[in-house]
């Protein structure tokens, strides 16, 4: 029997406190550190003046510029993307009863990428939605992908074992990846844009990207939070949830839609960033248990903090060169993925 690493879960309030502290310190560090470091006092002054409009007189012009136009949008975007990926990962895992499910392993990210690449490749924009063409395409594609993956996984193995879903997700990832590669091969001048975007990055996006992700973020998070109880029931299996009184068909669709919304929007603004949705919920579950009432908000906070931190590392570790942020998350995420898989297998053998 696998012994839980922390036998009695930590006090819930303490965990919330830790998560908020982590997010705040990542945030401050993320805004402060860079090619030009902004001292914390200046930073606080700038934030107080520019955002809270407090009557603070002396702020450094250059610092204000760096913070308001470069660092702050970048850090906020990283936070939103990380939060979106982490909370949708937690939701996918609960719904599919599968600790290895996350937007990346399920192929949803690839679906969203394909949608985005199509928009970039043909560089068109739909009437009415305008600048939202890219995220809408990403979301639609991620939505279609998750349903296709689940449909095929069910075809392969009616009991929808963990491995079957992951395998199907990987097959879809490769398949969709082929289309993306095809389009890259056919692209001439836009190549750099697509590649840079594919590797995942939150740099040089500006405030406009935040306005793109924000509506999807709010709707997705709200919907998932309202389904925390249902996710608890669903993590005992769909039949069991039905027995407990959950309207499984409707709730499942709602949760998948919200998950796809969050993933699609995150991919649309930052490209494919893997493993955030896997690593963060896993750690939170180790700390506070699998109850989604706490798992979802805590994943949200820590996911945001984690990606801000990863972004900070990616742009400072071999400065002035910037690493793609996906490299950092994969370096941390892949070993965790392997560890969970191994624990799962030994757990089942007992």
């Amino acid at each position: 029997m696998p012994k839980r690493s922390i036998q009695t879960y930590l006090n819930k309030k303490l965990i919330y406190l830790l998560a908020v502290a982590f997010l705040t310190s990542s945030f401050l560090a993320g805004v402060s550190i860079g090619a030009v470091s902004v001292p914390i006092m200046d930073l606080l002054n700038i934030l107080a003046k520019e955002i809270l409009h407090l009557p603070i007189e002396q702020t450094n012009e250059m610092y204000t510029n760096i913070v308001m136009n470069i660092r702050l949008p970048r850090v906020i975007l990283a936070g939103l993307v990380g939060a979106s990926l982490a909370i949708s990962g937690a939701a996918f895992q609960g719904l599919l009863r599968n600790p290895l499910a996350d937007p990346y392993t399920l192929g949803v990210s690839s679906g969203a990428s394909l949608g985005a690449v199509i928009v970039l490749f043909f560089s068109f924009s739909m009437p009415i939605i305008g600048s939202f063409t890219l995220p809408v395409f990403s979301v639609s594609f991620s939505f279609a992908t998750i349903f296709a993956v689940l449909f095929f996984a069910r075809k392969i193995d009616r009991s929808m074992k963990v491995e079957s879903i992951i395998l199907t997700g990987i097959i879809f990832s490769s398949f969709l990846g082929a289309f993306i590669s095809l389009m890259i091969a056919l692209t001439g001048n836009e190549l750099r844009q697509i590649i840079g975007w594919l590797l995942g990055s939150v740099s040089m996006r500006g405030w406009s990207y935040i306005t793109i992700i924000l509506p999807f973020f709010f709707v997705g998070v709200l919907v998932l939070m309202l389904n925390a109880k249902e996710l608890n029931a669903l993590s005992f299996g769909e039949d069991r949830a039905q027995h407990l009184g959950v309207n499984v068909k409707r709730r499942k669709l709602t949760i998948l839609t919200a998950g796809a919304l969050l993933t699609g929007a995150a991919v649309a603004v930052s490209g494919t960033i893997g493993f955030v949705g896997l690593v963060v919920p896993h750690f939170i579950r180790q700390l506070c248990g699998p109850d989604h009432k706490h798992l979802l908000p805590l994943s949200l906070l820590s996911g945001g903090g984690f990606l801000i931190f990863a972004d900070l590392v990616s742009r400072t570790i071999i400065a002035p060169t910037e690493l793609p942020i996906g490299v950092i998350t994969a370096l941390i995420g892949a070993p965790v993925f392997a560890a969970i898989l191994m624990k799962n297998r030994t757990g089942r053998r007992r």
């Binding site: 009863r97 608890n232 299996g237 027995h243 407990l244 248990g289």
Partner: peptide, 28 residues
């Protein structure tokens, strides 16, 4: 669910809920 309850033959434990959390779901 308020009228009919089911005791399943197997129950899968993917995540380690506590006993009380599990029982509390019955109140859903």
């Amino acid at each position: 669910a308020r009228t009919v309850a089911v005791l399943p033959q197997h129950s899968s434990q993917t995540f380690s809920y506590t006993v009380k959390e599990t029982v509390s779901l019955g109140r859903y």
